[in-house]
Simulated assay, not measured.
Amino acid sequence: MSTRESSLKIGAVEALVKLLSEGSSRGKKDAVTTLFNFSTHSDSCKRMIEVGVMIALLVALGSEGVAEEAASALALLVRQPIGAEHVAKEEMEVTRLINMMRRGTPKVKENVVAALLELCRGSGALATQRVLRVPALASLLQTLLFTGTKRARRKAASLAWVCQRCEAAVTPMEAVGAAYRFPGNSMATFVYDVSMAPVSISVPVL
């Protein structure tokens, strides 16, 4: 890509970020849809992050009408190492993501837990420990395991396994289910009853 083409793309992303932050409802919808399309191209992610797209999308999670598309774009961006690294360094961004597991739509929750899983996978123990420090994590994961969409339940189960492996405090599987203890999350413990849950985690795919 030439310097001119690169500058034009950066300029376009900057304009979209501004539109997402300050535009009308229709403008925000168009902006987040275009940003989602840009997020599917790995060569665009670095430039998008450089001009502040991550914080704009995180703020958009709380905007009715664009939250689902914003969550989808975030999930794609966090799959890129640079995206995961960026979010992992910002505790407020991690907290904002986790809070959307409480009040987002089912689709938002699905994409948020997918983003958190990619974040922990992509940035390792440091990012996982930052996720674990959010007090509400255990209860939100438990709720999602039983009430989320099929994909959300699968991602939540995988995230629980990543967290328990990180903390090295796994309670062995028992006949009635598995207990997850998160020492970094106020010693929160929840029990995932495999016999009752609508998704199995006996063979997690990590």
Rank of each mutant, 00 (worst) to 15 (best):
S2W: 13
T3E: 15
T3S: 09
T3N: 09
R4H: 12
R4E: 15
E5N: 08
L16T: 09
S21V: 05
E22L: 08
R26H: 07
R26D: 09
T33A: 11
F36Q: 09
S39G: 07
T40N: 09
T40V: 12
H41L: 06
C45F: 01
R47S: 03
R47G: 00
I49G: 02
E50V: 01
V66D: 02
E68Q: 10
A71T: 03
A75M: 13
L76E: 13
P81G: 06
I82M: 09
V87W: 01
R96I: 06
N99R: 15
G104C: 07
P106Q: 12
P106E: 06
K109F: 08
L116Y: 03
S123Q: 12
S123A: 15
L132E: 12
R133L: 05
V134I: 12
L137G: 01
L137V: 15
S139F: 09
L141E: 03
F146G: 10
K150R: 08
A156E: 04
C163R: 06
C166S: 10
P172C: 11
M173Q: 12
V176G: 05
A178S: 06
A178H: 13
S186A: 14
M187G: 02
M187F: 10
A188V: 03
T189G: 04
D193F: 14
M196P: 01
V199K: 14
S202W: 05
V205A: 13
L206M: 15
